[in-house]
């Protein structure tokens, strides 16, 4: 096994599925010859040809419509939205059509569509590149929203998403693309959808997170461990629908919880996790649910990112506040 970046793991997942199933198509802006603006599709156009891996005109709704139409024709499609901040342009096709197609046709048609998109803060992008908009799509019935936190999961989750007959929005945090390497096996393997993972076992408090904030949570847990606090870190992996079983089992064990997300606090994935705990596990708790999230402003101008984004220290402080409640 070799150590690989998350972007390499994603390319491998696409490569595996293109090779395995000739109905798999990969398309979007610059994904062809250029290999994608982050090189996620590097070499795939050359290897599989222009009928399988291709550039589209620059229009996100068009890409969404193309995906829906090709899926109706029996293809298994992996469109890319170049940055998830551009998703508003494609929202009608994703939320209004792709997510509803199976329901709308009474279960008589499948929608095997995996919409990939980079997102996430900390890499000094221009406006509407870095926003965490998973909460928007998490509200759409019929859609799964998957956010990997590491290279191993990215490959296995993306393969599961592509093989799923239901639509998946697959969000890739830009800061994770190349910031670290991890063991990633050769060949195809799957990581299950709809399942959270206990990334670190602990007994004193549960830190529930996803995406890049899992890294921050793990770093916080390391530091807390030195101070005698054994935090358990739960990585949601699929942020909609959430894996209540794993969340509740962890909270039951620790009796305390801090929910960490990079997105703004209002009405998002963290709120859903908190609601599930309040609904089904409130009596496990010895202290109020703690939440770490970005403030409720639009995504900041990039020089202010580090002040705006939640970080390891915010998590440590919130955990201590909870423990000392």
């Amino acid at each position: 096994m070799a150590k690989k970046t998350m972007i390499k793991a994603i390319t491998e997942a696409l490569d595996e599925e293109l090779a395995r199933d000739e109905k798999v198509l990969v398309f979007g802006e610059d994904v062809g010859k250029n290999g994608g603006v982050f090189r996620a599709t590097e070499g795939l156009h050359e290897k599989y040809g222009n009928e399988r891996v291709f550039d589209t005109p620059l229009a996100e709704s068009g890409i969404g419509g193309l995906a829906a139409g090709l899926a109706l024709q029996g293809f298994r499609v992996v469109p890319e939205i170049q940055f998830f901040g551009f998703v508003y342009e494609a929202m009608d096709e994703i939320a209004g059509h792709i997510s509803r197609m199976h329901f709308r046709l009474g279960g008589t048609r499948k929608m095997p569509v995996t919409i990939r998109a980079p997102f996430g803060g900390g890499v000094h992008t221009p406006e509407l590149h870095a926003d965490s908009l998973e909460g928007l799509v998490a509200q759409m019935p019929g859609l799964r929203v998957v956010i990997p936190s590491n290279p191993y999961d990215a490959k296995g989750l993306l393969i599961s998403a592509i093989r799923s007959n239901d639509p998946v929005v697959f969000l890739e945090h830009m800061k994770l693309y190349r910031s670290f390497k991890e063991e990633v096996p050769e060949g195809a393997y799957t990581v299950p959808l709809d399942k959270a993972q206990v990334a670190l076992e602990g007994t004193d408090i549960s830190i529930i997170s996803y995406g890049a904030m899992v890294r921050e949570s793990l770093k916080a847990a390391q530091k807390l461990a030195k101070q005698g606090i054994k935090a358990e870190v739960v990585d949601l992996r699929t942020v909609s629908p959430i894996d209540e079983e794993t969340i509740l089992a962890s909270v039951k064990k620790t009796g305390r919880v801090v929910i960490v997300q990079e997105a703004q606090k209002q009405a998002g994935v963290g709120a859903q996790v908190a609601a599930s705990i309040a609904e089904k596990g409130i009596l496990y708790l010895e202290a109020p649910i703690g939440r770490i999230a970005a403030p409720n402003t639009p995504y900041p101008f990039s020089e202010a990112e580090s002040a705006w984004l939640p970080n390891k220290q915010d998590i440590i402080d919130k955990v201590k506040e909870n423990i000392n409640f």
């Binding site: 068009g62 969404g64 419509g65 193309l66 829906a68 139409g69 899926a71 109706l72 024709q73 293809f75």
Partner: peptide, 23 residues
């Protein structure tokens, strides 16, 4: 597909269905 309610949404989908025939 069943009748479309959102004005124009069927036009982008038609491009996808048509490309499917071509492929």
């Amino acid at each position: 597909l069943p009748p479309q309610i959102i004005i124009g949404a069927q036009y982008v989908q038609a491009a996808g269905v048509a490309l499917g025939f071509k492929l």
